[in-house]
């Protein structure tokens, strides 16, 4: 059952305890939103700032929430947009909207064991912004290429290309010594 159906069914039973209700919303979605922010930003400090801003924005905009989507979907879309804005403005500040695929940093990984999720998290943080955003949306969040393209304002073919570049770059970063 979709969350929106639950919302619709129970909305009439709403109470006025707004803050505890919002805390419940936060507790339910904070991990997913923080993970998205962390992977977009590439570091914990910016991810935490983003998490706060996203929920503050959600709090301000809840009055405008329409029933066309589930609350979680609405919140996630809001989070993706905020994360995109953040990475783009950061890139603009650094005067580097996109980065060429230059030489990789030395691999963080040691040993010859299987690649772990932590290895991959670290490697994702080293990706250039453009392909990291496409990769996170497609391979981590499960968006289709056309959705990634729409969110990033690029062509579907460019999304495919960015995701592929990201995987190739990750392969190099994760190579065994």
């Amino acid at each position: 059952m979709a969350e929106t159906q639950v919302v619709h069914a129970l909305a009439p039973a709403a109470a006025s305890d707004d803050e505890s209700a919002f805390e419940a919303l936060y507790r339910t979605h904070a991990k997913r939103i923080y993970s998205l922010a962390y992977r977009f930003a590439g570091n914990a400090a910016e991810a935490e700032d983003l998490l706060q801003e996203i929920f503050l924005q959600a709090y301000r905009k809840l009055g405008g929430f329409r029933r066309e989507s589930a609350l979680g979907t609405w919140l996630h879309r809001l989070a993706v947009n905020r994360c995109l804005d953040h990475v783009r403005s950061r890139a603009a500040r650094q005067d580097a909207v996109t980065e060429p695929l230059g030489p990789d940093h030395p691999p963080d990984r040691a040993g010859t064991g299987p690649i772990t999720h932590l290895d991959l998290e670290r490697a994702i943080a080293q990706l250039p912004d453009a392909c990291r955003m496409a990769f996170v949306l497609h391979d981590v969040e499960g968006y289709e290429h056309r959705e990634v393209a729409k969110r990033l304002g690029i062509a579907t073919g460019t999304s495919k290309s960015q995701v592929h570049k990201a995987r190739l770059r990750l392969r190099r970063l994760l190579r065994r010594p």
Partner: peptide, 30 residues
């Protein structure tokens, strides 16, 4: 992080308005 969000929300000077209706699901249990 939640405490910071809460602090920033508390600093917001906005009426709760229609937010309450949409949070029905979340506040329903309570």
């Amino acid at each position: 992080a939640w405490h910071d969000v809460r602090r920033r929300i508390a600093a917001e000077d906005q009426p709760l308005g229609p937010r309450v209706e949409w949070l029905g699901w979340w506040s329903f249990g309570r």
